[in-house]
Amino acid sequence: MNNNFEPEIIAYCCHYCAFAAADLAGTMRLEYPTSVKIIKLPCSGKVELIHLLKPFEDGADGVFVAGCLEGNCHYLRGNIRTKKRVNYVKSLLKEIGIEPERVEMFNMSSSMGPEFARVANEMTEKVRAMGPNPVKLKGEEVVK
């Protein structure tokens, strides 16, 4: 696998916790990979199946959703619902031969800046180890 591979990861972050945590990570000057591109949502429960699939269609290497800690969702159950959707998308990806681990769900509070940085690093390393999204990879092979 290409050692210089820098994954592209889409992170859906809820306004109340995960986005605030990402903001805090920045304020704390914690480093996390530039590979993680954040999309802010009012609640992680806003995430639908297609939002988790579309990035893969367009060549993203990983997707994660970060919501509030379980039991602390601003909209009560949004994060629990999305967790189920993330698991369902894992099964869909498996059905078409894509590693289910490319999509994950994380929970954190708004004060957990270091946790956001850790999760961003963990996801980046995991996806880097898996290699590029096969959608892109096949394009490279064809070029060869």
């Binding site: 199946l49 699939l53 269609e57 959608v135 096949k138």
Partner: peptide
């Protein structure tokens, strides 16, 4: 919604195989 999801899955699989 299901049309979107199925189309996306078909596209990803197709692109995966070049």
């Amino acid at each position: 919604k299901e049309v979107e999801v199925l189309s996306s899955l078909l596209l990803i699989e197709r692109k995966k195989n070049g």
